[in-house]
Simulated assay, not measured.
Amino acid sequence: MGESFSKKENRNKKMKAKEDKAQKKEERKVNNSKGKSLEDMLAYVDEDGNLSSEPPKQTHRAEIDPKDIRIGATPRPPEDNTRTGIITFFNTLKGFGFITDDKSGESVFFHVNQLSEPVKERDSVSFIKEKSAKGYNAVAVTKVVSRSGKS
């Protein structure tokens, strides 16, 4: 009795796989890098970033002092957060108010606990603007004496 078509097909596939495996084995033997010298295996990068098998020609190199290398963001000088402004609203019963910043013109909240001395509306004050969860707050609020001697 003869073989069925599928059995012949499977046998032929196995034979083909063995032949392919033997061929790959021969290719590995021919292209084997064992025994090659280190020089034959090295690749060099020239000053333009291209790979080559030859070492790059020695050209003039600029010497860089490691202290001149800066990694990361450029440090900013500390800001002077002291601002001046005028109290535009102050509720003495509830203990809060708002200062209009002279520089930016924005309204900054302050609480009575941040006052160093009693103040009233339209007083000139100096303060430190501080970021909080709800926006900016004025802290360390002090009255500024005007040049005419009046506060």
Results as ranks from 00 to 15, higher is better:
Val139Asp: 10
Leu51Lys: 00
Leu51Ile: 00
Thr82Asn: 06
Ser116Gly: 08
Phe127Ser: 00
Asp46Cys: 01
Pro55Met: 02
Arg147Met: 10
Pro77Arg: 11
Pro118Asp: 11
Arg70Asp: 08
Tyr136Asp: 13
Arg76Pro: 02
Ser146Glu: 13
Ser116Tyr: 06
Ser116Phe: 07
Ser107Gln: 11
Ser148Ile: 03
Asp102Asn: 15
Ser52Leu: 01
Asn91Tyr: 06
Phe89Ser: 08
Leu115Asp: 03
Glu117Val: 01
Val141Gln: 04
Pro75His: 01
Glu106Gln: 15
Ile64Asn: 03
Ser52Thr: 02
Asp102Met: 09
Arg83Tyr: 05
Glu130Gly: 04
Phe96Val: 01
Ser132Lys: 03
Arg70Val: 14
Phe90Pro: 01
Gly49Cys: 07
Asp102His: 14
Thr84Ser: 07
Phe96Arg: 04
Ser104Leu: 14
Glu130Leu: 07
Phe109His: 12
Asp68Ile: 12
Ala140Gly: 08
Lys131Pro: 12
Asp48Tyr: 10
Ile69Asn: 11
Phe110Gly: 00
Ser124Pro: 10
Gly72Glu: 06
Asp123Ala: 00
Ile128Met: 09
Ala133Tyr: 02
Phe127Thr: 00
Gly135Lys: 06
Ala62Trp: 05
Ser104Ile: 11
Val144Asp: 08
Ile128Pro: 01
Ser104Lys: 14
Val112Asn: 06
Pro75Val: 05
Lys94Gln: 14
Asn137His: 11
Pro66Cys: 01
Pro75Tyr: 03
Ser148Gln: 12
Pro77Ser: 04
Val145Glu: 14
Pro77Gln: 10
Ala138Phe: 04
Phe89Tyr: 09
Gly85Trp: 04
Val139Met: 13
Val108Lys: 14
Thr142Ser: 12
Gly85Cys: 06
Ser146Thr: 09
Lys134Arg: 11
Gly105Ala: 03
Lys94Glu: 08
Asp80His: 05
Phe98Arg: 07
Asp101Trp: 02
Lys67Gln: 12
Ile69Pro: 12
Val144Met: 12
Glu63Ser: 13
Phe90Tyr: 15
Lys67Glu: 13
Asp68Thr: 15
Pro66Asn: 10
His111Ser: 07
Glu47Lys: 09
Phe110Lys: 02
Ser107Asp: 15
Asp65Cys: 12
Thr82Gly: 00
Ala138Glu: 02
Asn137Ser: 12
Asp80Glu: 11
Ala140Tyr: 06
